[in-house]
């Protein structure tokens, strides 16, 4: 599990520092702090960023909104962002709204509010609402990462690192190359959101990353995966495996 990378765009050093402290206390990784629009743009495209926190006003101008507008023009590289503002001026809000504000954070804010805003931004950006506030779920699935909330800390797991998933009721055991952990997500949702080419259900219980399959033992209904993990496949899903083998 990795920390989530955050870019802060804030022109007031004290506030930037305070925010950084809050984020790092809560297991976030602040990869950079930009003071100007230009700096923000260069950092945004240079660093591996998961979430951007943007102050609406940079040096008295609403450059924060301009930045959001700029990154929104390229949807592929767009990341979720949170607006920081001390103004409740409707005109600013209306303009910010046009950039699809994934979350607002009204100054002054406390740590909890910051975390909530970040979570909200993620939920909205990946269109999987009300995940983190729920007791039954704690994971958002994006193209490359699983965003997993453990207690109050948010982490991410690279999807390509997953070897297989062992489903048990509402819980899923995620087995990656490095570790093993439990997330709360329904089987239906995980199947829907994970790329169906890469991930194939081989058994009522198992979803396997096909990239990690090393051996298929048909007579034993057994798959040998990377890291010497063994996963059975049931007759029901045998055909899938066969076609898969042929393809391979």
């Amino acid at each position: 599990m990795d920390k989530i990378n955050i870019l802060i765009i804030e022109d007031t050093p004290e506030e930037a520092t305070a925010l950084q402290e809050v984020l790092e206390e809560n297991n976030y990784n602040v990869v950079g702090i930009a003071n100007t629009y230009q700096e923000a743009l260069s950092l945004f495209y240079k660093l591996p960023i998961d979430i951007v926190i943007i102050d609406v006003f940079l040096d008295g101008n609403p450059d924060g909104i301009t930045f959001a507008e700029t990154i929104s023009t390229i949807p592929d590289t767009l990341k979720p962002f949170v607006f920081l503002t001390s103004s409740i001026d409707r005109q600013i809000f209306e303009r910010a709204k046009l950039t699809k504000p994934y979350s607002f954070l009204l100054k002054p804010f406390n740590g909890l509010e910051t975390l909530y805003a970040i979570e909200m931004a993620l939920e909205k950006f990946y269109d999987q609402s009300n995940v983190f506030i729920n007791d039954h779920q704690d994971t958002i699935i994006s193209e490359c990462y699983l965003f997993i909330k453990k207690k109050n800390a948010l982490n991410k797991v690279k999807i390509s690192d997953i070897i297989y998933i062992d489903v048990e009721d509402r819980y899923c055991n995620i087995i990656t190359k490095q570790e093993k952990f439990v997330i709360q997500i329904s089987l239906g949702k995980i199947k829907e959101l994970l790329c169906s080419k890469t991930f194939v259900q081989t058994h009522r219980k198992y979803i396997v990353n096909t990239n990690t399959i090393e051996k298929i033992i048909l007579e034993d209904n057994l798959l040998i995966l990377e890291g010497n993990h063994q996963v059975t496949f049931s007759g029901k899903y045998k055909e899938t495996i066969k076609s898969f083998t042929i393809l391979k």
Binding site: I88, D89, N110, L112, E113, S129, N130, I133
Partner: peptide, 23 residues
């Protein structure tokens, strides 16, 4: 002066209370 930004959406009451309690 009708200048308040107002946007009704789903809000989790538990976490809102928690956020306020924090202060």
């Amino acid at each position: 002066t009708q200048q308040l930004y107002f946007h009704i959406e789903s809000v989790d009451l538990y976490s809102v209370i928690q956020q306020i309690e924090y202060n």
